[in-house]
Write a protein that binds this DNA or RNA. Structure first.
Lengths: 200, 200
DNA sequence: GGCCGTATACTCGTGGGCGAGTAAGGGGTG
DNA sequence: CACCCCTTACTCGCCCACGAGTATACGGCC
């Protein structure tokens, strides 16, 4: 296949996107990306920033442009995105948007081992999840509405998307819970018996 | 905070769940888990299996029970789950089910840098995603229906959940696409102009 | 009966990710 | 004017994940 991405960490995507707007030194990227709230969109670990920038440089996607020092502060290296970097950013974006990838949410892993617990505990856990989910939803909805006035929709797509997905999850959980407590879940007794005998 | 999980890799969760059913040696776990299709539920890399089992052993969650050889084959070490292992499995399951965690689907990352592309290309990419999504949905629905007859619902929850989420994603994408092509997306012209001037 | 492909069963090296550590300037306060 | 803490700006080193490699045996086919 088309050889794997030179730098796979999504933090690299954020860095490229930032450098397209303006050249920066790493620490500035961090504040810039935090201000933009990009760390809400991707699993960003700031400890990886310098490694990632170095890797981008190694592969010619960014390049050092200036390396001055101000006062006695540690030296700062300002980076600029290269043509190859722009191309990589565009290509990567295309891939991320056009190609749905198999995702592995942790909840799915949890569901797949849920049988090990009893049905009553399972229901209780789902209730807890649903509550947390609904609290979060209220917050997200409020935050989105607040931003709608100030920010163009283009920059709210991620939040819109996440909100929609969370709503779907809450809906599914609510239905499952109803089946479980309403008794319309099949083989409930078998599950309970199996667990009470094989369990702890 | 309650100190991080001893072994964090989700493959460890699958291994624990397998060993609760019966003691096994690592290679057998792999075939067992593949047969159960657990690699659909979690991002499992088989290259990590031996590392993960060793780590579980190191932390006392599983223990070696027998280490014989059959014929001239390489030595096989059979592992059994310990009491601590059972407890960890139950606790981990509870956490995964009851606590919604902030997830970072790659599509979200893609959306967050979509502005870098023009609106026309964006629409085209979304169209491609939607098509792929719908193809996948048809398959998943068929597979689920086929299993409904043979497998208790308890073991189909992960698939049900995933199906629901994918449907929600397809729905959102479809609506966004309609807004984009129907002209009801705000600031479309600004976006286009910005891109045509600042772009390549 | 010899050959080959596939299943069995691991081993190992590298490379990246990430947390924790470091160190100097600035500015506010008593 | 001395102290201290927060911000700026990185550096380092461990550890784990994972891909690629290895080695034997069994079964089937010609």
């Amino acid at each position: 296949m088309a050889e794997r991405r030179k730098v796979g960490n999504l933090l690299a995507l954020a860095v490229l996107a930032a450098l397209v707007e303006k050249s920066m030194h790493p620490y500035e990227m961090a504040t810039f990306l935090k201000a933009r709230g990009k760390d809400e969109d991707m699993p960003i670990k700031w400890g990886s920033l310098y490694t990632v920038v170095a890797n981008l440089a190694k592969h010619g996607l960014v390049e050092a442009v200036e390396s001055g020092r101000q006062g006695g502060r540690p030296e700062r290296t300002v980076y600029r995105v290269t043509e190859a970097g722009r191309a990589e950013l565009a290509d990567w974006t295309r891939e991320l948007v056009a190609t749905p990838e198999r995702e592995y949410p942790r909840f799915k892993a949890g569901l797949s081992v849920l049988g090990g617990l009893g049905p009553d505990e399972a229901a209780e856990l789902l209730r807890r999840r649903l509550e947390a989910l609904e609290r979060g939803l209220a917050e997200q909805r409020a935050a989105l509405d607040a931003q709608r006035a100030a920010v163009p929709r283009l920059f709210l797509l991620e939040s819109e998307y996440e909100l929609t997905m969370r709503e779907a999850e809450a809906g599914w959980t609510r239905r499952l819970l109803a089946d479980l407590t309403g008794g319309s879940f099949p083989d409930l007794d078998e599950w309970r018996r199996f667990h009470e005998s094989g369990g702890v």
